[in-house]
Design a protein around this nucleic acid. Sequence first.
DNA 1: GCTTTGACTCTCG
DNA 2: TCGAGAGCCAAAG
Length: 106
Amino acid sequence: MSFNKKVWQLCKKVPRGKVTTYKEIAAAMRTKAYRAVGNAMNKNPYGLLICGYGKNMVPCHRVVDSTGHIHGFAHGLKKKSDLLRKEGIKIRKNKILEFEKVRYRF
DNA sequence: GCTTTGACTCTCG
DNA sequence: TCGAGAGCCAAAG
């Protein structure tokens, strides 16, 4: 299985209402390719399904950096924060509130 | 194959 | 507290 697919697989394991970080994912794969993880997200073929919540969706919007701050998103940061808020996660200025509480650990 | 490119993270000052 | 710099890794050209 390719590196990217592993990333997406792990991504899908994040439950609704929870978030994870690029670092967590990398750690779960026993690697330190934090940046490559983000790169994988950016190129993920299921990106367009995020908003539609399709069968093979990869909840990329539940992945943020180690500080709980949101970076880029294929559909825009606003869209991403909206989706997270809809799942019960509070966001303010691209920053996740109560990060430690909603953070999912593998 | 070597070089470039990131949705990253850590360390300093 | 915050920004700059350096280190990191895999994918794409």
